[in-house]
């Protein structure tokens, strides 16, 4: 099977692509590192193509990688650099999005 998404150095993606995505390839960043995804796909797919998880959330801070994918379990919230928090499985990827997963720069 063909891996169409470039993994970030040192990390690896969790999801494995099995079908060709139609959307055009667009740039975005994760913790400042430039990566690419497909326009129109949900953020969760774009992130997990190159990362194993979203990092941790309080209260128990276990590592998360989504669960239900239909916006109900709330296990996939991620921060954007503009201060927004979004649910990765219901938020479409947009070119230029800056995702922050690193908890060390987390205020609220």
């Amino acid at each position: 099977m063909e891996d169409l998404d470039d993994p970030i150095d040192g990390a690896h993606g969790r999801w494995v692509r099995l079908a060709r995505a139609r959307g055009e390839s667009v740039p975005f960043t994760i913790d400042g590192i430039p990566v690419r995804g497909h326009a129109g796909q949900m953020l969760i797919a774009a992130i997990l193509a190159v990362r194993p998880d979203f990092g941790c959330l309080p209260p128990d801070r276990r590592s998360r990688a989504g669960f239900c994918l239909i916006g109900l379990c709330q296990d996939c919230w991620v921060r954007l650099a503009d201060g927004r928090r979004v649910r990765a499985c219901t938020t479409p990827l947009e070119a230029g999005m800056a995702v922050r997963l690193d908890p060390s720069d987390e205020s609220w």
Binding site: W15, V16, R17, L18, A19, R20, A21, Q41, M42, I44, A45, L48, A49, G66, F67, C68, L69, I70, C73
Partner: peptide, 16 residues
């Protein structure tokens, strides 16, 4: 993942 989640990953995103 839930079964529905895995299925959505596949059908909607083309990913396992």
């Amino acid at each position: 993942y839930t079964l529905g989640g895995a299925q959505a990953a596949l059908k909607v995103h083309g990913c396992a």
